[in-house]
Design a protein around this nucleic acid. Structure first.
Lengths: 213, 213, 213, 213
DNA sequence: TATGAATGAGCCTTCATTCAT
DNA sequence: TATGAATGAAGGCTCATTCAT
């Protein structure tokens, strides 16, 4: 019988198991209603084991979400690198965020309900990850402004809110288990609104600014 | 055992006191962390008194928020009646929502965190109030589309999400107790984005793609 | 408008109303689960009114049962007076008790579950009523013994227990809402067992009735 | 905060402790009046510990009574195996039941007051145990009928009720803490009534009514 | 390291009873 | 007399966390 002596690896595996189990339970029940005992049970362990690796239940929640962010991040920059038009870069970010919402709506909900609204969020690793995540959008917008493609009189942070807040708000029905999320269609519409607005362009030989003449 | 009774109030007065007290505590602590005992204590009563008027803690929460919605609704339609241009009507709604967020950020947070994401929300009086509230925006948009002022290829519901989701997202920092909320400025920017988009209008004689030439 | 000045009568009516209402609620829910508020509500009054006439909830329960006993007693002695054979008198008592159980099983249950097993039962008016009630059976038995019809080596109290305990035990299914109670049939069987026992009379010239010869 | 833990026991030991403690408290106070906190305190533990092993207070009650039934059952069949005459077998069951009542009157009371009259009793493990227990008596009676020793025109279930209901009723005074229970004497009398009835056998040459002559 | 028994604070909810109006 | 608002104690149950084994 071979006794593999790889505590480091064993530890990492254990942590992953716990994170996986915790993600499931947190998603199903939300933070408050999730019991550490159940998280442990689902991986065939007991409470004590969880506490060996994570100091508190709340810390475990943050770790779960960090883990998710890291998963997501992987190919973001690579994907962005392949697109150059500002509007297309914008669309990529919107599209990816919508896809995240569609794929892991419960994790989005956790992020929103249980974390972002808590006082202790600021200064967290997770907070930082989130900043870096939404920073991507700010960067794209700022680049567009710098290039003269986007107007500079709108606070990029406000645009970020309209994009991410809008997506979350819109996705709520989907999160609650109702309806379908048409990622492509919604992405197009958001980008259209964002870039062109909803005011109908003046018709026939009139440019928007043509009314000046 | 002599029992000292709190002053007897008319039913309606007492209900108002409780709603007031509950609003405070719920806002400060959130739903879960709020103890009915504290809600009672803050108005100089005991738990039993609260339960005399509200069957459960959760019901009390819903009632608090309904009360708030009713407060808000009062002059909405009157205000809207005085404005006719579609864009101005849009701005009025945005502006008022921002003002609500500035005045009662914690209530917005409650609404969002503790109520809208719960399964039992649908079918509530509160849900209905909320629908009627956001319906106002949908109506304005649809009217604009009907008049040919707004483009018809964007789902009004998505626009609603971008407006309310965006405002809530943007207001988060403010909600968390940081920073100032410039209601007028933000309202202007939101309306601008919404109506005109962020793409810089091509200057006279230049079409958008004209820069290539 | 005639103002009838009959407080005494009004009082009695009130008391009856309360007793009636309390009987219903106690029967439906049992003593513990019955709320004074509901008892009051069912007669269109409030808690305070009940406490004006009955010092405690428990006292009310006892009064309800006393009232019932008094109802029952009315014609007992009269009925008994019309029957002279000991065995028939016995049967009358058994039959009437079965009928009570069939008609008011819930009251029997109250009597049994909530009253007789409590420490404070002894010395109660109700206890006394109950004694007088079961005394009837003892008297019949003793008379039978005195007349030499019944054997004297069985404690009458034990017989009483076998009759009333047996009836209550047997009636349990009925009380719980299942099955039918065949008052006549059961009465006959009980009397048969009681008087003759279950041992089959030896045959061959010695039938029990053979003694006539 | 240093927490002092009670000595760790094997699961089974702890369960036994709790059952023991619960039995005491339930017997002393009845189900409603018994506080889980007291059950725990009596064994030097806290409420949480009890709930670790039993999901609800009611479940604990049922478990206590099941435990008792299992204790009792042990030698029943063995004892019965040693007796063959129907009447003697009957007596054995009566005698043993009386002894149970004498030894654990409070448990009998619990069984009767708190369990059998509740709607949720049917289908319980305890209900099944009870059925098997009283089945023993039915079997003996049926065997007697089959052998022609007992008459067949009395429902065995009614006899069962007269025996068990009678014993419980009779034992009530004893249960309430008054008086002595003469197990042998009472058993004899019950069997006598059951088998022979109370009607005095006519003496040789005397008809029942012959005394008149 | 893993276990899982033990902790104990805390919360919602109920309701008999009191008493000012 | 009737009301019904107010009381306040009490209890079941949960669960994050600790720590002896």
């Amino acid at each position: 019988m071979q006794r593999v002596h790889a505590p480091r690896l064993a530890r990492e595996q254990r942590v992953d198991e716990i994170l996986q189990s915790a993600r499931e339970v947190f998603c199903e029940k939300g933070f408050e209603a999730a019991a550490v005992a159940e998280i442990a049970a689902r991986m065939g362990a007991v409470e004590g084991t969880v506490y060996k690796y994570f100091p508190t239940k709340r810390d475990l929640l943050l770790r779960v979400l960090e883990h998710w962010y890291e998963e997501m991040f992987g190919d973001y920059t690579r994907d962005l690198a392949g697109v150059h038009a500002h509007r297309e870069r914008l669309r990529l970010l919107v599209w990816r965020h919508l896809r995240s919402l569609r794929d892991k709506p419960k994790l989005c909900r956790l992020m929103f309900r249980e974390v972002q609204s808590e006082r202790d969020y600021r200064g967290t690793v997770l907070h930082d990850l989130n900043r870096r995540y939404t920073q991507l959008l700010l960067d794209v917008i700022r680049a567009g402004v710098a290039d003269g493609e986007f107007r500079g009189d709108i606070a990029p942070e406000l645009l970020r809110s309209m994009v991410y807040g809008g997506i979350e708000h819109h996705g709520w029905n989907y999160v609650c288990g109702r309806g379908e999320l048409d990622v492509d269609g919604v992405a197009d519409q958001i980008i259209t609104v964002l870039c062109e607005g909803i005011t109908k362009p003046a018709r026939a030989g009139h440019t928007k600014t043509g009314k000046k003449s």
